[in-house]
Amino acid sequence: MATHLAAFVTGKGQPLEVQEKQTPKPGPDELLLDVKAIALNPIDWKMRDLGFFITKYPVVVGSDISGVVLEAGSNVSSTFKPGTRVAAFAPTVFVQGAPDYGAFQQRPIIPAQNATPIPDYLSFNEAAILPMAVATTWSGWETIGVSRNTSYSPSDKQGLLVWGAASSVGSVVVQSAKLLGFTVYATASSKHHAYIKSLGASKVFDYKDPGVEDAIIKAAKEDGLTFQYGYDAAGAIPSCHTILKALKGSGPAHLASAPRLSPDGPTTDDVETKFVAASPDDKVRHEQFSFWFNTWLKERLEKREIVPSPKIQVLEGGLHGINKGLEILKAGVSGIKLVLEL
């Protein structure tokens, strides 16, 4: 039987161990990939160190990958024929780290609805940083009721607040909100302001400014904007509440919170806060991922309407470099995405 290398978590809080494992066969709706690049996310070190979403060991974790289709299941469309370059969201969280499906290996199994073709103009490294950010962004939109068919024009004066826009999720939120027609107000460190504006933000504010809430409210009122929606990608629910409460129209405003600070976050009569999550129902979630990756991201990349962001820092060591990368990520990074090449 064919084998390949995988980085296993053998127990809660244990470092990853690179070992050989049997290469699986894809099911009817699945792909077997030859991984070329892996991007790291905070959930990766939390699964390794804290055992998040894991029920038994050993496991293979990781979510963000790019690579080449080696084999496609019998029900998979010709979009993903062998040899196709793809970016994909490995479903490790949804399968509790089941070894065949984690990103931290050379040959994972990926549900076809979790993949999107990579256009020729994108590198594997660039493509690998997109899947988790896209899935988290769209989970947020659907969680707080932003329709897939939303299409505002500037004259509608519909603003949207993005807190933490320099993160990988925040930067995709900015881009997708702009594509939906919102006038985007964002926060980030001052060194990232020009970059966030290039992604589609109308105005960017320094979240470290002690008067940032008042500055956002003042600017929005001067621009005549209403803010019914916000996306917190950095864990600043109180500030987001203050701003949305001051700028909302009729009815409550809606805030998506990517960091899970509490089960649903504080909800008041003025602002409803919900933690970002894909549907727990398998059938519904499969449809969501199919739209996000097979349709939305595929079309946006073909039209060059989505830019992989933020900047990439390539780490050495391939699978053997993941432990070090997770420690760097755990210590905190700003405006960069850590990527390993295989």
Rank of each mutant, 00 (worst) to 15 (best):
Y57N: 06
I38T: 08
K46V: 14
F89T: 02
K56Y: 05
F124M: 13
N41D: 12
P42N: 11
R48S: 05
K81F: 03
V60D: 06
P82R: 07
V93Y: 04
D120W: 00
N75I: 01
T137M: 12
F94G: 04
T55V: 13
F89H: 10
S66W: 03
T137I: 04
A39H: 06
M47A: 13
A103L: 06
I43L: 11
A133G: 14
P108I: 06
S78P: 04
Q105K: 01
Q113D: 08
M132I: 12
T92E: 09
N114T: 00
D64V: 08
Q106L: 11
A115G: 02
G140W: 04
G51R: 12
L122T: 04
V60C: 06
A88N: 01
T84Y: 06
A90D: 03
N41L: 02
W141H: 14
P58H: 04
V146R: 07
I43V: 15
L130D: 10
P117K: 07
L50H: 13
F94S: 07
D100H: 10
A133I: 09
P99G: 01
I129F: 07
Q105W: 01
R48E: 13
L70N: 10
D120C: 03
L40A: 06
W138V: 02
N125T: 15
N75H: 09
P91K: 02
A72K: 13
E71R: 09
I65K: 02
I43D: 03
R85F: 07
K56V: 01
P119W: 13
V59T: 06
S139W: 03
